[in-house]
Design a protein around this nucleic acid. Structure first.
Length: 429
RNA sequence: GCGGGCGUCGCCAAGUGGUUAAGGCAGCGGCUUGUGGCGCCGCCAUUCGGGGGUUCGAAUCCCCUCGCUCGCCCCA
């Protein structure tokens, strides 16, 4: 009877060292980006009261009704691992009175959880990078937010992206349109695919997004949200489009872009890639002017988006090895090992990237490993050097072009006290 | 939740009913009692995701199960 293998839960993923380099690159880029734009970071708990998401995201949405990781804690409270970030950020802003202190420009990054069947670009624990602008209703803020997403992706060097734009109007616009659409579709139920029939009762707007071809053909004749919008909503949308044009950001209007979460109003958008397979959305977001009030706060305009970091990393072409060390410290013999330990610390305090060989293997092995690591300079301490209070220096690869006085293949012996300076000088050339 | 594909060593991978389960990479040890990037030698899966069955005999066939993966769905 074999022991049960302990491994990650389904849909949960370990990030190994060769992958974390790319993640760090994304994280750093994001930090700089937001910093330059005056957006400040907010960190909220992974665990929240279930009611926050039920109310904020919408009881009828797939996320809430089938995808949440919910459980009772020891105090019989219903808790949920956050499936997205916006509800938490708005909750925090309300709870701490941020909404009474002028508008807020906030970003976050961290794990989210949805109980779904994993596939390419979709995991049960995944990571999002998000932006929320609270307290500004201006069309300019919609565009500012979208521009930040677009430019961040651009700076990361991601190609082949498309910005898809739509408007959902006000809740009244939507309600009105929904009635029209449902009325129109009910007369044609027989022509609908089973999925869409189901949705007619639960979430009729999502039918617009159906991938069923005959349904899509049928929908060509259906009433359009864009044409049933109120005047104000329509003008607002046109304003947003013009501002995007002013920024030279290309976009396509996609009337069937509906978004899954209830809280969206007016602007809705997605940035998609043609290289991600079925899960093509890299970034999604929109305006959610009603959310703060739904969560019990002061009525507050809101605009935001989230990016899936796993999908970004997929697009970045994944893996990078660690940068090679500048110095590798080879050492063998009891007292030499102690000296090497001390020296490694000194060199690191001098801000050098130092790899200390801890294997105790023969020098031949240690050289081999140093070479494979791609180290530049070898510092060698054996018993003889340890006795004499010296170390040896040798290039592992060709010295920098500017005629270093230590030649390739040559070795210098120098007092331990001078190593730090000499190494810095050699590497600086 | 529903379909399709797959599961042999840390990684890649041969093997499709018959005695000891190829090979490569990585790792470890040696050739070289203290000098690498090359080479050579040796070691590294009593076992083929797990369980049951068929058979004289199974990694190879059947059933169940778990996991991975792709798509539907949904979205980041």
């Amino acid at each position: 009877m074999a022991l049960e293998r302990l491994q990650t839960l389904r849909g949960m993923v370990d990030l190994l060292p060769r992958q974390t380099m790319v993640w760090q690159q994304v994280e750093e880029q994001a930090r700089h980006h937001f910093h330059r734009a005056g957006v400040r970071e907010i960190r909220t708990p992974l665990l929240e009261a279930t009611a926050l998401f039920a109310r904020g995201i919408g009881e009828a949405t797939d996320v809430v009704c089938k995808e949440m990781y919910s459980f009772q804690d020891r105090g019989q409270r219903s808790c949920t691992l956050r499936p997205e970030g916006t509800a938490s950020v708005v909750r925090a802003a309300i709870q701490h009175g941020l909404l009474n202190q002028g508008h807020q420009r906030l970003w976050y990054m961290g794990p989210m959880f949805r109980y779904e069947r994993p596939q390419a670009g979709r995991q049960r624990q995944f990571h999002q990078l998000g932006l929320e602008l609270l307290g500004v209703a201006e069309e300019r803020s919609d565009v500012d937010a979208m521009a930040m997403a677009w430019d961040l992706l651009g700076d990361l060097g991601i190609q082949g992206l498309q910005l898809q734009l739509n408007t959902l109007g006000t809740p009244e616009d939507r309600r009105c349109y929904r009635e029209q659409l449902v009325g129109w579709l009910e007369q044609r139920v027989q022509q609908l695919d089973p999925d869409s029939r189901q949705r007619l009762a639960t979430n009729p707007l999502r039918i617009l997004d159906s991938k069923n071809n005959t349904t899509q053909d049928l929908l060509r004749e259906a009433p359009q949200l864009l044409t049933t919008l109120g005047k104000e909503s329509r003008e607002r949308f046109e304003g947003v489009c013009q501002l995007l044009q002013a920024l030279d950001i290309p976009f396509v209007i996609t009337p069937q872009l509906v978004r899954g979460l209830d809280y969206y109003t007016h602007t809705a958008f997605e940035i998609t890639s043609d290289q991600l397979g079925a899960q093509a959305t890299v970034c999604g977001g929109g305006r959610y002017d009603g959310l703060a009030a739904i969560l019990g706060g002061p009525p507050t305009a809101g605009m935001g988006w989230a990016m899936g970091i796993e999908r970004l990393v997929l697009l970045l072409g994944s893996q990078k090895d660690a940068t090679p060390p500048q110095v590798v410290l080879l050492n063998r013999g009891e007292s030499a090992q102690v000296r090497a330990l001390v020296l490694a610390r000194q060199l690191r305090q001098a801000k050098l990237h130092v790899e200390l060989d801890l294997s105790g293997a023969t020098f031949a092995r240690q050289f081999r490993r140093a070479d494979r690591l791609g180290g530049r300079l070898a510092v060698i301490i054996g018993e003889q050097e340890a006795q004499a209070g010296v170390v040896k220096l040798k290039w592992l690869h060709h010295p920098p072009q500017s005629g270093s006085d230590l030649d390739m293949g040559e070795e210098w012996t120098l007092p331990a006290a001078e190593v730090s300076k000499t190494v810095e000088r050699l590497l600086a050339d």
